[in-house]
C-alpha cells in the first residue's frame, strides 16, 4: 500500500520527546494532542485521529513489530468499567496538575520536577524556564509528566500484549469514542423521529 504523509506522524511524536527533553516548555505542544482528537470527534463525529493521525499509536505499532509479545490482552482491559475508570482517574490526576499550576499562578513556588506514574518525582533542575511566567513553566512540568506517564504505560502494554494495546484504554480514545456514541445516539433519535 502506498504510504501517505500521515503515515509518518510517528516522527512528530518522537520530535515532541526530543524537544521536550531539550526544553520542558515544548511540553505545551502536547496540548494539541489533547484538543485535535476531541475537535475532530465533536465536529466530524469520527475517530479519524486515532485511525489515521495518532503519532503515538503509529510509534507503538512500529516499535511493537520488534518488541511486542503479541499476546492477547486480558479481557478487563477492554471492559467499559476499566476504560471509564481509567479515564476518570486520568482526569482527576489531570485536574490536580491544573490545580498545582493555579497554585503557582497564585504565588506558590515553582516545583521543577516531572511526576512519572503519579508517584515518582523526577528532578528536572537543568530546565531553563526563567524566560516565562512560573505558572507557564509549572504547567509544562505537569503536562510533560502526564505525557510521559501515558507513554510509559503505552510502552509497557505494548511489550506485554499487542503493539497498540494502549489504544484500548487510552483516555483520549475513550473520550472520542464516547463523543461519537453520543452523536450517533442523537442521529438515531433524529432519524427515528423523522421515520
Amino acid at each position: 500500500m502506498k504510504r501517505k504523509w500521515y503515515d509518518y506522524l510517528w516522527i512528530a511524536e518522537l520530535s515532541y520527546w526530543v524537544l521536550g527533553l531539550c526544553n520542558i516548555l515544548f511540553a505545551w505542544l502536547g496540548v494539541l494532542f489533547f484538543f485535535i482528537p476531541l475537535l475532530m470527534a465533536a465536529i466530524g463525529g469520527n475517530k479519524i485521529y486515532c485511525n489515521r493521525y495518532c503519532g503515538r499509536g503509529q510509534l507503538l505499532g512500529l516499535l511493537g513489530r520488534k518488541l511486542s509479545r503479541n499476546a492477547p490482552p486480558p479481557r478487563f482491559l477492554r471492559s467499559y468499567w476499566f476504560r471509564g475508570g481509567f479515564l476518570a482517574f486520568f482526569m482527576v490526576m489531570f485536574g490536580l496538575m491544573l490545580h498545582s499550576t493555579y497554585r503557582v499562578f497564585s504565588g506558590a513556588p515553582l516545583r521543577q520536577t516531572v511526576t512519572l506514574l503519579w508517584m515518582f518525582r523526577l528532578p528536572w533542575q537543568w530546565a531553563d524556564v526563567e524566560m516565562v511566567a512560573p505558572w507557564v513553566a509549572q504547567f509544562a512540568f505537569g503536562f510533560f509528566g502526564v505525557m510521559m506517564t501515558s507513554t510509559v504505560l503505552g510502552l509497557l502494554t505494548m511489550v506485554l500484549f499487542r503493539p497498540r494495546s494502549w489504544c484500548v484504554y487510552c483516555p483520549m480514545g475513550t473520550m472520542t469514542q464516547g463523543i461519537c456514541k453520543l452523536r450517533q445516539g442523537k442521529e438515531d433519535v433524529t432519524c427515528g423521529g423523522k421515520g
Partner: peptide, 19 residues
C-alpha cells in the same frame, strides 16, 4: 474500541470504522 489498527492490515480494504 474503534482504534483502526485493523484498517492498516486488511489486504482487501474490507474494514471501515462506522461513525
Amino acid at each position: 474500541v474503534a482504534c483502526g489498527s485493523c484498517l492498516r492490515v486488511c489486504p482487501r480494504g474490507a474494514i471501515h470504522i462506522r461513525s
